[in-house]
Structures are given as structure tokens and as C-alpha cells.
């Protein structure tokens, strides 16, 4: 069982060592990784996903429960304590959704047969157009693919650590995903440009030039700011769904004034 992971410093894009001794993330933690594009956010979660041992471009090392993880944990998907939702919005495997999930369940040694249908049902909570079990994964839209991969990560991956790379870009029901993951009591790491997600997490890692620049912890005003942004985000979400459904806006929207 995973209790914590420790990130040991690597090097930035200029080859300078990162300025921290270690970063420890514990079970139940919610973490966001923020910073400009190209600052190394995806590289950082990839290091975590690969449980890097100085053998990635950043030269970071990742410990599990204070120790170097065994090869079995690093390389056997059935033992891997980490699932990652990447920014990929495409599947290349020429398989139906059902076959894809069946093979993945075998890889993860999940033997509950109902998990396949449950995963598809969950994915359909996140996406507008429904996915059927005989739909080939190669023809799923970007949003459908990501919804399926998120549902797969939760149901089939079923790991104590979830890494999510810019889930806000997917055109899917972000709120539903965030709520579900929060409830699961897992360690969740978001790479994000979304202020709502960034403010909702307890820990914020700020990236620059390939390196961790600083680590911040959620403060009281931020918790309140997150709540009000969440309300605003829901309103925007409602309007988005109205527009998607082909409706017109027939009332005045409240003016927003943050001055």
C-alpha cells in the first residue's frame, strides 16, 4: 500500500540543480502543478508515472514510501500504484471499447467482469455523446476518448495515485470528474491552467524553466476564492450546456465585477 511518494531534485533546462531538498506527497493529498507552457509540468508528472530513477531527461528520482521502488512496481502494470491521464485524445489500437477495456483489465489483473460495463457507464457521465461498448476506440472523439480514459483510470486502473494532465481541455464535465476523484481519498495530482482546479488543491507546485520553482499550500482566502470561482464555473457550465443544446440566452446575465 502506498503512503507517500518523495520527489528528489533533478536539473532544470540549463542543467542547474533544482532548489529543494525533497517534495513529499502523501495519501489523500490533492496537488496541482502550475506554470507556463513548456515549463516542465508534464515532464514532472511523467517522472512520477515512470517512477524515474535518474533515467529521464530531468534526472529526478522518485521514492515510494521512502524507498527506491522495485522493478516489479515500476514495470508491471498489475503492480503499478499510479494511473495517469495524459493529454492524448486519440487511441491507435484497432479494438472496440469493450475489447480495449478487457485487455487493460487483464493487464491490471482485475477479474470482475462487470467492471467493463461500469467503466463505460462512468465514461458516459463525463461526456455528451454516449460511448457504446462496440464502438471502436479509434473513432471516439477527443472528449469521448478522455472520458473513457478517465473512467478507465478510476475503475480499471484503480490505483492509489491519479495523475491528470490538463483535464480541463477535454470538453468534458470537469466538475463531475473532480468530485468523483475527491471522494475516492486518493492522492490526486493535476497539471492545470484552470484557476478553479489550482485553488481547490491543498498543495501547489509552481514550475519554471523545467524546474520546480516553489511549493505553496492553500490558505484561507484561497479556500473562499475557490468556492466563489466554483459557483461561477457552474454558471458558465450551465450556459455552455444551453449553447451546446442549441438554445438561446433570453435573460440578462449578471455583470461580473471583480474590481
Amino acid at each position: 500500500m502506498i503512503f507517500d511518494i518523495t520527489i528528489l531534485p533533478g536539473f532544470d533546462k540549463n542543467g542547474c540543480k533544482e532548489q529543494y531538498t525533497y517534495i513529499k506527497l502523501k495519501a489523500g493529498d490533492t496537488v496541482s502543478i502550475v506554470g507556463p507552457t513548456g515549463s516542465g509540468k508534464t515532464a514532472l508528472i511523467s517522472d512520477i508515472e515512470l517512477l524515474a530513477q535518474g533515467d529521464t531527461s530531468t534526472k529526478r528520482r522518485i521514492f515510494v514510501n521512502g524507498e527506491v521502488p522495485s522493478d516489479e512496481i515500476r514495470f508491471n502494470p498489475a503492480m503499478k500504484p499510479i494511473v495517469m491521464i495524459t493529454q492524448n485524445t486519440k487511441c491507435f489500437a484497432d479494438l472496440t471499447t469493450e475489447e480495449f477495456l478487457q485487455i487493460h483489465a487483464r493487464a491490471r489483473k482485475i477479474y470482475d467482469k462487470q467492471v467493463i460495463q461500469k467503466t463505460i457507464d462512468l465514461a458516459n457521465n463525463f461526456t455528451g455523446e454516449k460511448i457504446k461498448k462496440d464502438t471502436r476506440v479509434t473513432v471516439l472523439s477527443g472528449g469521448q476518448t478522455r472520458s473513457l480514459l478517465i473512467a478507465d483510470a478510476i475503475m480499471v486502473g484503480a490505483s492509489p495515485i491519479i495523475l491528470l494532465d490538463e483535464i480541463e481541455n477535454a470538453g468534458i464535465f470537469k466538475q463531475e470528474v473532480v468530485n468523483l476523484i475527491h471522494k475516492a481519498g486518493k492522492m490526486v495530482v493535476f497539471v492545470t491552467h484552470d484557476p478553479v482546479i489550482a485553488l481547490l488543491t491543498k498543495t501547489r507546485i509552481i514550475m519554471e524553466n523545467g524546474a520546480v520553482k516553489k511549493v505553496l499550500y492553500q490558505n484561507e482566502p484561497e479556500i473562499r476564492a475557490a468556492q466563489s470561482l466554483l459557483e461561477l464555473d457552474k454558471k458558465i457550465g450551465t450556459i455552455r450546456e444551453e449553447l451546446r443544446a442549441g438554445k438561446s440566452i433570453t435573460f440578462d446575465l449578471p455583470a461580473v465585477n471583480y474590481a
Binding site: 494511473v83 491521464i85 495524459t86 492524448n88 486519440k90 487493460h104 493487464a107 480514459l149 483510470a153 486502473g157
Partner: peptide, 17 residues
């Protein structure tokens, strides 16, 4: 880096089998 973790694991499983 071009595919999702799930798809990587599906491919690995297929090769292993």
C-alpha cells in the same frame, strides 16, 4: 509520450500474451 497510459498497458499486455 504519444499515447495514453492505458493504451501503453494494453499494448504491453498484448505482447506479453
Amino acid at each position: 509520450d504519444l499515447v495514453s497510459q492505458a493504451e501503453r498497458e494494453v499494448l504491453i499486455q498484448k505482447i506479453k500474451e
